[in-house]
Amino acid sequence: MADKRITIQATRYDPDKDERPRLQSYEIPFSDDSMVVLDALNYIKSEVDGSLSYRWSCRMGICGSCGMMVNGTPKLTCNAFLRDYWPRPVVVEPLNNFPVIRDLVIDMDDFMHKLKAIKPWIIRRQEIPLGAGEHRQTNEQIDDFRQFSQCINCMLCYAACPVYGLNNEFLGPAAIALARRYNLDSRDQGLKQRLPVIADNEGVWECSFVGECSVVCPKGVDPAKAIQQTKLETTMRFVLPYGNRD
């Protein structure tokens, strides 16, 4: 165990020097069975090559910042155990479908704009003053949207979505799942404000149901379901008399 080693191949890209990204190989000790890909990257950064760049923060699958391609699959690197890959080498690349800023760091601006566009907060027609008390909810009402609220904005679903890869205008899985989360919330009255974005050509109707978003989600969210449900719901609003109510 003490001298077990594993090869990590990580994408390197310095915009000032490199024309295109390339893979660099590091052989490091695989000293502990609980080591994850992020531990390997941290080992490389601290012991081998301080210039390797990547994002990470919480190490417990809640901040959503350490998403990368691990052997071609989008993963949270804090939750990708080396023991599942060893003795094969582990190829770590930046998330697919996004511009690369540097090494394993992608530009997430596009996602941030889309996230903001669906207004992921509770919208009330009439704000009530703080002193008037809280908006109460039963457990059953929470169950209506609970799984969609588990999204941590890690963007793995965008990296898995070939529709987004082919057309960056697509609103994308996480944004629509979060729109659904708020539209299903008994306290929310913002559906009408979100409709122009989610019911657009580049919204739910761009999705052709590959379903890979739901496969790669590390938090058990089912964005593919959210999108198909939204297709049905927006169609019903359009077709049914009085369907266009709030």
Partner: peptide, 22 residues
């Protein structure tokens, strides 16, 4: 800073069983 623009490779649908079935 200059970013590297990622492009879908033409053979993207051969890279994953789900993509292929799709």
């Amino acid at each position: 800073p200059r970013e590297y623009r990622w492009r879908m490779p033409a053979n993207w649908w051969t890279r994953n069983r789900h993509y292929f079935l799709y």
